[in-house]
Design a protein around this nucleic acid. Sequence first.
RNA 1: GCCACCCUAGCUCAGCUGGUAGAGCGGCUGAUUCGUAAUCAGCAGGUCGCCGGUUCAAUCCCGGCGGGUGGCUCCA
Length: 644
Amino acid sequence: MSNIQITLPDGSTQSVAAETRPIDIAKGISPRLADAAIAAKVNGELFDLTRPLEKDATLQILTAKDPESLEIYRHSTAHLLAAAVLELYPETQLGIGPPIENGFYYDFDRPTPFTPDDLEKIEKKMWEIQARALPYERVLTKKEEGLKKYSEAWMKCQLIDERAGEIFTEYTLGPKFIDFCRGPHIPDTSKIKAFKLLSIAGAYWKGDEKNKQLQRIYGTAFFTPKDLDAYLKQVEEAKKRDHRKLGKELDLFSIQELAGPGLIFFHPKGGIIRKLLEDWMRDQYLARGYSLVYTPHVAKLDLWKTSGHANFYAANMFTPIELDDAEYQLKPMNCPFHILIYADRQRSYRDLPVRLGELGTVYRYERSGTLNGLFRVRGFTQDDAHIFCRPDQVEEEVVNCLQFAIDTLAAYGFEKYDAEISTWDGGASGKYDGVAEQWEFAEGALRRATEKLKINAKVVPDEAAFYGPKIDVKLVDAIGRKWQLSTVQFDFTLPRRFGLEYIADDGKAHQPIMVHRALYGSIERFFGILIEHYAGAFPVWLAPIQAIVLPITDRQAEYGRGIQKQLEAAGIRSTVDERSEKVNLKIRDAQMQKIPYMLVVGDREQESGQVAVRNRKHADQGAKPLADFIADIHKLIESKAVTE
RNA sequence: GCCACCCUAGCUCAGCUGGUAGAGCGGCUGAUUCGUAAUCAGCAGGUCGCCGGUUCAAUCCCGGCGGGUGGCUCCA
């Protein structure tokens, strides 16, 4: 047998017998490396540690430190899950079982659904198999043979049929489990140290609801129990911040069964926050050259036929309302209304850009299963604006929109964000409206705008809306979750459908470029994100109650009321807690309501004419004259500070 | 919409294999007047989501409907 040359990452080379396995080389380097090894990278391709090396190659041994490792490890854990399911329920058919962002899942087809009790049983069985240190073995099978061998396994046949080459790889785990899989995997189950099955869900085969619905088991896995624990704690933390929970506890909003799902009621405390969000946005509109408009909530169905929504958006609209003269449609979008305003008079190139902004409430029929608190609702208000401009103005408009989006994020305390440009498929599928020239022009404008603003934007091909390319901004919240927020989208379709035009300097009519943009996205959703980002402890300028006066005994009640009157006069949202309760209790309640400032007043303060300031985050701040406190809090409010 | 699970006092939840319900918090009343995260006592409060079925008897078992949670799908 001839020797092959293996080059390691440090540049050193070794000559080894062909068919040597990466794990052998790792052992040769150090037993500890062999022990820590998860997989190998051979000429840039991921390899099992036990897959023989056939020719000269560069070799990297992957350990838990390498980013690819966790995915491989989770993928292997998914196989372990499937093997356990097969041992317990041999009649089960296997779907797919990939690693995902925070773990893995495996899809199964079986006549009876899994129960939460099954999850426990399966987990136990997984540990049993884990203890056997079963190897993950790579098997090569011919396509023909495979199809014959698995003729009774319908999902496997489909996968082999669609994806397999002439020879495909399978991985076995113990006597029963074998799966069509590209790999690679960890050497054996003893490497798996920490995992947990999390939930059961229905999922359609290949994600298509026309297909059979399978049973999906979600789980997660980490290299150490400590990491798993940390992850589960983070999930707990996210639960504590759940805006639905906080919305109830802080009395911000509700959804009323009698009124219908997906429809939001803003309570007084949520209402004041909404008012502030709206004011901020309207002020920004006016400061940035937008015009404010107001449009109706319904319009004749004919409008939606002209816009095309009655056709392609029908599934997401409330059904039309029959009146005596015509059918009316609750609006799912603001665009056609803004277009009507644009088209209501003749426009000169000198009038452009026309920027029409509105906080427009729209109603969309979302399937009941997709509704989710404030995040996905059936009635919501978009901070929607449409810009109609000349081609030579496009780039500046896009830059301004993106700058506006970034300023919005900063104003609410979001420091990190991602951007994504969604482009078309080059016209290959024919599913996109407009011509190549338009797409290239618009996509170029988006790209140049991100370069100019030094925004790192990922380009995602074939993800655009059918009517034009777009850029989406995703924020990263306090606990690292990403939320899709702002969007800037070109629209090649509506200007054409409505015959929009302006008279250019050549005296001829031209079609304006139309840009949709929403920065909060939806006020409801943005509110929900804010609740979770701040865990309900809103910045002082947004806090529904900014200060609460806490008299220690009834003797200071009147003094306390006087303080509150002065706060009110200074424009500070405040209350007094006059209950005959201990100050400890009042503080506890105020803390739980996340009120930024508690002004404790006892005999001492009354005599000196001061207030003892307690901050919700920094506790006791000592006594000071009320005027000083008012000056301090005014500074925070005026600067819209996100810390205090 | 589909799959699984859930719905018991205002809130959070307990209630064994069917025998018409409990706690804590909250509310009300009274006592207490207290210095930086829960003072004590008493009282009130529920056709156990709704409709139907099985049963001598249903919060519990079965079916339908409504609402919610986690997913699938979609997106603001």
